[in-house]
């Protein structure tokens, strides 16, 4: 299998089929990133297309001695952030559709009863609401960490910040998400109580 870096060299020599191969390799990843941040399919698809066109235009700037994946991910994040700033889009990350089937509670092996299912759905709604309330920076870094499954070093490369800054931001994002979830839970009259499913 030809490496990504070799393909980029072929593209710069005019081989457009090599770029087609790169699109096939990375379109799912890039679309996932964009969709998680944007939360709208059509807009995410348009931005994903824009990402690949930007990659094609700036491929001559790519240093083939480095990894291609962080480079294209950085372009995807920056393009999405730019789109967010342009549209002042309120991100609505939807976890509602298929959350149930993948909602794996590692700590609970109990067989869910109907009350548990209701509480689970309520918890998912609270988490979604909390995510929507987060600012773009916290949301993006959470997506990069948990959706893109990037470690702190990779996130620091993409965002072009130090690893310590990534760790601090990620910690603050988790605390902000937790704080938001608890506040919402408390607002429902369940102060100092966690869902029974937990």
């Amino acid at each position: 299998m030809v490496s990504d870096e070799v393909l980029t060299q072929q593209v710069t020599r005019g081989n457009l089929s090599a770029f087609e191969e790169l699109v096939e390799r990375y379109k799912k990843l890039i679309f996932t990133i964009v969709y998680r941040i944007i939360g709208h399919y059509q807009e995410a698809e348009d931005i994903t297309q824009e990402v690949f066109l930007t990659v094609f235009e700036k491929l001559y700037q790519f240093d083939s001695g480095k990894k291609f994946k962080p480079w294209i991910q950085r372009i995807a994040i920056n393009t999405t952030i730019t789109a967010l700033r342009k549209k002042q889009k309120v991100i609505n990350i939807s976890y509602d559709e298929n959350l149930e089937k993948d909602f794996n509670l590692n700590a609970s092996s109990k067989i869910p009863d109907p009350q548990t299912e209701v509480e689970k759905q309520e918890l998912q709604a609270e988490i979604n609401s909390a995510l929507q309330g987060l600012n773009d920076g916290y949301r993006i870094i959470l997506v990069m960490r948990y959706q893109m499954d990037l470690n702190n070093s990779e996130i620091s490369d993409i965002l072009n910040v130090s690893r310590e800054i990534v760790e601090v931001r990620l910690h603050r994002a988790r605390k902000a998400l937790r704080k938001s979830v608890v506040e919402k839970w408390t607002a429902r009259g369940l102060k100092d109580e966690l869902p029974a499913i937990l």
Binding site: T32, Y95, N98, L99, D102, F103, N104, L105, N106, A107, S108, L123, Q124, I127, N128, L131, L142, V143, R145, Y146, Q147, D149, R174, L177, R178, V181, L194, P195, I197, L198
Partner: peptide, 13 residues
């Protein structure tokens, strides 16, 4: 457990 649920939601693809 709440943290694990949050991670599950965040990692859900």
């Amino acid at each position: 457990r709440l943290t694990v649920v949050e991670n599950g939601v965040l990692q859900n693809k």
